[in-house]
Design a protein around this nucleic acid. Structure first.
Length: 136
RNA sequence: UCAGGCGGCCAAGCGGCUGCGGCCUGUUUCGGCAGGUCGAGGAAAGUCCGGGCUCCACGGAAGAAUGCUGCUGGUUAACGGCCAGCGGGGGCGACCCCAGGGAAAGUGCCACAGAAAGCAAACCGCCAGGGCUCGGCAACGAGACCGGUAAGGGUGAAAGGGUGCGGUAAGAGCGCACCGCGGCCUUGGUGACAAGGACGGCAAGGUAAACCCCAGCAGGAGCAAGACUAAAUAGGGAGCGAGCGGCAAGCGGGCACCGAAAGGACGCACGGAUUGUCAAGUGCCUUCCGCACUAUCGCUUCGGGUAAGUUGCGUGAAUUGGCUGGCAACAGCCGAUCAAGACGAAUAGCCGCUCCACCCUUGGUUCAGUGAAUCAGGGGGGUGACAGAACCCGGCUUAUCGGCGGCCUGAUGCA
RNA sequence: GCGGGUGUAGCAUAGUGGUAAUGCAGCGGCCUUCCAAGCCUCUGAGGUGGGUUCGAUUCCCAUCACCCGCU
């Protein structure tokens, strides 16, 4: 199984938040952004890229790390069988990420993924996404 | 059995599927893949102290400031920690809590109340012994005016030792006994201090976590410290050389003024040399000595930032077993072991079983009995407390569902 | 990692080792035909726990929460 690369830099997260589509579910918030072909470092062979965020609102360090681990596990499971697409995904933890049943959490993500992939595909390549609808 | 005190230890377990980080080995089409092995804590937390390590600063002498600490003796790399002891306070007890000296160096403060709040004084009182006045022949009586007194009342957190006896006009350390206080001596102890003795006679209120005095300690910054490597370019750094201040006087020409002009001379700015004088500013905590730098130019030389990569970065005041010394903290010796090293940050995600805690419930037992405790069983339900290494170490503090075990104290019952 | 600051009534702020003050808001009253304005009255108030002191919001220690710098 190919490793799914990770978003690590603050500008990558900011780009996903500014020019991507957002879906709010009970257990998490998902942001998606289709990478442009003309941006520096564009590699057409790269598929999905994942980023995880847990702010202090989620809890202390133990709670934040656990939330990110749960999100990471279900994202790897869900994306394993999907065809690769040049899309950055950012998963933001909420307080419910810790309490919600794992099955429901997976369903949340599947639903968000289906919707965001459709939205990203609707935006033609080269468009920065900012001229589209303000928020999903 | 009940109630308590003080140390120590643990921090749910097992299995299945899917995964993560470091290292080693093999393999590779250099992207990886396979196998093995290791992989959070007692507080990893708060950052309240102390060190290691690294860089910077660091010349000599004297001084000041700031901060912290403060019974004694140990222990340690060091500490505000720890151990043992001293003193004071609390508890029936096991045991727990607190903290330096100086208030006869100085300054400040002590509200309200009270006559008086720090230096002695006297509001209500008490006193007819003394002086005085009155009555009386006198003895004597009356009066609190002069005085005496601090026992009693009252205020206060605190009013210049306490209790008792004697004493007295009334009283008072005025005298005595005991207690307390003070310095002195002796003894014991390394010492804090303790015990004893004779003496002194109430003189010296409290506050120093008020300023302060005394003693001790402290250079600054922090692994984003610091070091190395690769790429392209300009500010930049270093060294060497030249070179640099203010004021006054007088000089030169210019402007403006007076004058018809020659010229005059108050003033204004400029110029470069001269003379005289002061020698400057900044930095090194201050002062003195000392040192460095301070316009600009030339030459030589180095090569940074960019959260890039590597390193620092896991053999250490290490862990552990035994022995020895010591009451102990701790130290020494011998043996054994190597045990996380990440950087949007691994050490896990999900499921099942067991255990555990909680709630409901059935039955039994006990008791101080509409209840509680305990034992056995069933069901529900939480997925288990606090909490995640970020250079390392020694402490402190705080958070924490619970469990295991040890020593000790008090009460009660039985033998 | 290093450092600093603030917690006072519902809100915003003072102040001081000895009674905790002010404004707004709120309740009630006066005034007015009614409302507003004005006047009067009422606020269970110093984050928490210890210590020093006769006495602590103030001084000291610990702790909690929040805020702000520097790198």
């Amino acid at each position: 199984m190919p490793l799914i690369p990770r978003l690590k830099k603050r500008p990558q997260f900011l780009a996903a938040a500014a020019s991507g589509h957002k879906h709010v579910a009970k257990g998490m918030i998902v942001q998606a952004r289709r990478r442009r072909e003309d941006e520096p470092g564009y590699d057409p062979s790269r598929g999905f890229a994942l980023g995880f965020t847990a702010s202090k609102k989620v809890g202390n360090a133990v709670a934040r790390n656990r939330a990110k681990r749960r999100l990471r596990a279900l994202a790897h499971e869900a994306l394993r069988d999907l065809p690769a697409a040049p899309i950055d995904l950012v998963l933001i933890a909420r307080k419910q990420t810790l309490e919600r049943d794992y099955q429901d959490l997976t369903a949340d993500f599947q639903h968000a993924l289906k919707r965001l992939l459709r939205l990203c595909a609707a935006v033609p390549p080269g468009d920065d996404g900012r001229s589209g609808e303000p928020q999903a």
